[in-house]
Design a protein around this nucleic acid. Structure first.
Lengths: 343, 343
DNA sequence: GACCGAGCTTACAGCGCTGTAAAATGGCTG
DNA sequence: CAGCCATTTTACAGCGCTGTAAGCTCGGTC
């Protein structure tokens, strides 16, 4: 099956290439008879337009890049799904770049040594600072996700992490918890997400008339459930006492649940746990996780809408959009189940 | 920042376009002096090659498509990660097509109305039959994953599902389980994966001198933990008794754990559970899942190796590769923990 | 010192499609 | 039936790069 070109179809149908092109694109001003004749030739030859050539001619690729740290992190895989769905709705294909939180890979996302690959980029950086983004960003439209960076040159979508964390704390306080811990800080984490969540957590404590206790801010050495579990186990062994726990993400919460179970600490009776991201991992944890739930669908739609506008020619200053979130209540920190020994 | 073309660099450096191209591609026969001069011009102008034009000229896109049912299914998100990593190692970019198990979307993967988008496709179909794949498959190299189809026109990679299921059963039998159930059949599932796993399950029972009992094959109405949980709850309520459970995948197993917990059935004491796919979801379930673990990394590497060969010109008959698997033992069906009332 | 060949560099024709501008067609009007 | 205008179709020049084949250099050889 050798390649069929537009010109071949034109020859067979006895018309010009451009007419064939018009038929392919459903250009309205083509007589029905002509359309039929051309379509016949297309079908006979099994012609399929060559996308690469089209792109070269139009300058549009119809593709966007989605650059995220890890494809298989539950939050990112769920987000990817919505982005893929929304992109497909808008007629874009998605190429996935996995940065693995590698600074060089992140730089490569913007500083790509090649051009003309995609029409735009949706990028969730974790190692890159605003300055650097601004410096590296070239002509490609970029929409940033997450909290690490928000230069004025690119658009940006996030949820209000501070408020969300405050809400998480308020929920725990409302259920009678008095010693609420935060899990966790990660050394070398420059994303700002954690900072904002920690800030909101502290703010939440203050709102409730409590004093943040540095001992209750647990550190984790990596973004994995394993390390999170280790950190919680260590805290328990060191005698750090808490009856509530706000986690940086569901993965950390999952690790925490594991460590608590191992230590014989009951959730939610002894410790109520709030996760973050509302992922499948948390929905099926035991007990199922109460979790701060960013509206991922809205996040995806907003990011793509902004990107679309830039692709369509908007060149203004960077816009910042806050999308909504909710607190999804489940068993790990339910309503109306006061702590074992609430004071 | 307007576009810089190869010709602009050539002008500035005072050489031909082809020489610039040679420098860009590190073609060896370029004098150091020339190389320096050209590189200088490239840097001065901030030149970046246009990938689309390159593709049109070479006919290679440097991209492969990965077509899977759901990006955020734990098995597929983990597999995607390895495929993305391996692809990147080989210099390919990955574009992700989410079929959502939609027959039309699956057909579109092969029957794409446009050509020249990717050099090859890695495709995990769930609704499509061998015949149809063979009929629709065009000139693009295709490697199939999963068990639903294996036409002679395309390469194919899978694990030995029958043997794996037998091993799962053997493990449960070895731990003293005598009434082992299978979860679950899904109506409308034409993938063959489930069939093969069920077959292996039955074979495993026969190997152990047991008689498969149709009542112990549970049906689920959809590939979700929710439905799986419902199915198990229903079975328990109907008085179906079992002390071992082999699940079609970790999602089903996760749903099963939930239903069992709700019903006060202890795992593994009362029922030992074996999952499938060895995903993060199962690793952090409670209790952590014993699971049949396909070697996803090997799967990804094998699929890409086969695809690479086809892209490089191999046109022979479809090859079938079996990659290895293991049974990862965890708490849901541990070693040396005989059933509560084993007979 | 003319010749040779390996090593470098160049000119240019595509790759397959689309946008533009110009040409052809055909229905109406006066 | 010429004249006009709106609609439909055409010719062709790019889009930016690479492969091919030919041309140029220059040190080494006899």
């Amino acid at each position: 099956m050798k390649k069929v070109r537009l010109a071949d179809v034109a020859d067979l149908a006895g018309v010009s290439m451009k007419t064939v092109s018009n038929v392919v694109h459903n250009y309205p001003h083509v007589t029905p008879e002509m359309r039929r004749k051309v379509q016949q030739a297309i079908d006979d030859l099994g012609y399929r337009p060559n996308l690469t050539a089209r792109r070269l001619a139009t300058g549009k690729t119809g593709m966007i890049a989605l650059a995220i740290p890890e494809i298989d992190h539950p939050y990112f895989s769920e987000l990817s799904r919505y982005i893929a769905e929304e992109a497909s709705r808008l007629g874009y294909r998605v190429i996935v770049e996995q940065t693995l939180s590698n600074p060089e890979a992140e730089r490569a996302v913007l500083n790509d040594r090649e051009a003309g690959l995609v029409d735009g980029v949706i990028f969730h950086p974790v190692r890159m600072q605003s300055m650097e983004v601004a410096r590296l960003q070239r002509d490609v439209p970029v929409v940033l996700l997450g909290e690490s960076t928000m230069p004025v040159t690119a658009d940006h979508v996030m949820i209000d992490n501070v408020v969300a964390a405050q809400e998480g704390v308020r929920h725990l306080v409302g259920e009678g918890r008095r010693r609420i811990a935060f899990l966790g800080m990660v050394s070398g984490d420059t994303t700002g997400s954690t900072d904002q969540r920690l800030l909101g957590y502290q703010q939440g404590l203050v709102d409730a008339g409590m004093t943040p206790d540095p001992d209750l801010v647990l550190s984790v050495s990596d973004f994995t459930p394993e390390e999170s579990s280790r950190a919680v186990a260590h805290a328990l062994a060191s005698g750090v006492a808490f009856d509530g726990l706000v986690c940086r993400d569901d993965r950390f919460a999952t690790g925490a649940l594991f460590a608590l179970r191992q230590a014989g600490v009951q959730v939610p009776r002894d410790v109520a746990v709030v996760g973050w991201d509302d992922t499948e991992l948390g929905r099926w944890a035991s007990p199922p996780l109460t979790s701060i739930a960013p509206d991922k669908r809205e996040l995806a739609a907003t990011a793509l809408a902004l990107l679309r506008e830039r692709i369509d020619g908007y060149h203004g200053i960077g816009r910042h959009r806050i999308v909504s979130h909710a607190l999804t209540i489940r068993e790990s920190a339910p309503l109306g189940a006061p702590a074992f020994q609430s004071r």
